[in-house]
């Protein structure tokens, strides 16, 4: 990996008053204010939003995709299989 990455933020947009926020995608940013600006620039260029929420992807707690235990990968968090969501201790190679 080239240099340390900015964290990933999930972006939620409320397109019109009266509607809920909907997940639009994600952006990388160094801090929350930058994440908001980036979300606005990337996801509301065509006036698609009146309100933006950004949340660090690693802060999201998610349910299991399905009830039954063994059929799907069990995990109560980490909405993606994103490599930087996982803390690997120093000294572990090739990860």
């Amino acid at each position: 990996m080239s240099d340390t990455e900015w964290p990933l933020y999930e972006v939620f947009i409320r397109s019109r008053a009266g509607l809920s926020h909907r997940h639009a995608g994600s952006v990388h940013a160094a801090d929350a204010q930058m994440a908001l600006d980036h979300a606005r620039d990337v996801y509301t260029r065509r006036n698609e939003g009146v309100s933006i929420w950004v949340v660090k992807s690693s802060e999201i707690i998610a349910s299991d995709p399905a009830d039954a235990a063994a059929f799907f990968e069990p995990a109560a968090d980490k909405i993606y299989r994103h490599p930087t969501f996982y803390d690997i201790p120093d000294g572990v190679e090739n990860l």
């Binding site: 990933l8 995608g25 260029r45 993606y80 994103h82």
Partner: peptide
């Protein structure tokens, strides 16, 4: 500018699968 945006939507989609922006750029 749209093209930059499209790249971003797609990197975002790819990251859900277990890769990272840094890795892809590399």
């Amino acid at each position: 500018q749209d093209e930059a945006g499209h790249g971003l939507y797609l990197y975002s989609a790819a990251e859900t699968l277990g890769t990272s922006r840094g890795q892809m750029v590399d």
